[in-house]
Amino acid sequence: MKSPLNDRTILAAPSILGLRPSGVEQLAAQFLHAGLARRLGIKHPVESVPTLNDRYSDQRDPQTHCLNPRPLREFSIALGAAVQRCVPGRFPIVLGGDCSILLGIMSGLKRLGTYGIVSLDAHADFYQPEKSTTGEVADMDMAMITGRGPDLLTNIDNLKPYVQDQHAIHIGQRDWEETQHYGSQDIRATAITCMDLATLRQHGVALQSALLANHLQSLRIDGCWLHYDMDVLADDINPAVDYRLPGGLRYDEVELLIRSLFATDKIAGISVAIFNPDLDPDGRMTANMVEHVGRIFDAPVTL
């Protein structure tokens, strides 16, 4: 499948139903205000997906142990439909919000065929609801899109699982000790391909990027979604996140990783999540992030 990287379109989907209204709901608006559409040469009007954020509740649902499962399901159906309208003809760039946007994206893609996921994230996001200390679906999204969790969210329109384990890749985890402490299920004990921060550091991002690209090309899928949780960046580069962790990747390392994946022609679209403009009062980090995302699209890597 050829990815239409040059026909880009932006979907603004700044939902915080899977987290809390801490400021990440401003990501899309602030990135656009800082010139992201111009930097990426976007020709299509930005499409806004209704977030249902006004229905946010900080009370856990007693059946699912999650926050906001019903409005999140409704939002996910709407976001999935918006993604379907783009793929495969255009290259959607979905601006979150929190990482629970993956439920909508991946359930929408499942209606189109067999799609994989590459997630760049400092956190595994693999908690089961009863183990989560918060009930936030943003710390369960990788588990849920691979079919682990309450059917209300994992089985929209009988599409469970939205992604097969063998078609999922997780890059950049550095919260292993925390997941152990709180009793999360272990993403590494599955068929999901995992490349944590320690592995990237041990073998080098350039080598690991090439290995990931080769692995992605070997998968028998119709395409693959790329999810970029910006907390995978080093904490000194992006402290504007709600759950901070020491360490992380540099701008150039993330750019190399993503451009290597783009070069496979398997990537059908990208989502960007977890940057809190309220923690960037002078706007400098926002401007840096917009330029960084622009560089990702500037020059493909030749495999």
Rank of each mutant, 00 (worst) to 15 (best):
T64P: 02
E47C: 10
D186E: 09
L279E: 12
P150Q: 05
L79E: 09
R188A: 04
V46R: 09
G104P: 08
A81M: 12
A287Y: 06
H215R: 14
P50Y: 11
A263S: 15
E25N: 11
E255H: 06
P4R: 04
H227F: 04
Q26A: 10
P45S: 09
V163Y: 00
I156W: 00
C224I: 10
D278F: 11
V46G: 09
Q164E: 05
R73P: 00
A78L: 15
T64F: 01
L303V: 13
I117G: 00
L95C: 11
L279C: 09
I192H: 00
H123C: 13
D175M: 09
I42Q: 03
I156A: 01
D98T: 07
I237V: 10
D125L: 08
G97Y: 03
L27E: 08
L19Q: 08
M142S: 05
S209E: 09
Y115A: 01
I10A: 11
H181L: 14
Y56N: 07
V163S: 00
D242C: 13
H215L: 14
S119R: 01
K43S: 15
P92Q: 10
G147K: 04
E130L: 05
D278G: 13
G247E: 13
A210K: 14
R201G: 02
I145P: 00
L95F: 14
F297I: 05
I169A: 02
M195Q: 11
P62W: 06
V118E: 06
Q185N: 12
G149L: 01
Y162L: 00
L27Q: 11
A268V: 15
H167A: 01
A28S: 15
C86R: 14
D242L: 07
L112Q: 14
G294P: 07
G23K: 13
G223C: 08
A82E: 09
R148S: 02
M144A: 02
V254M: 14
D98A: 10
D151S: 06
G248V: 04
I237G: 04
S218N: 12
A138V: 02
T114W: 03
E25I: 06
V205H: 10
N214S: 14
R90G: 08
P300A: 10
S260W: 04
R201K: 14
D139K: 01
G41A: 08
A13F: 12
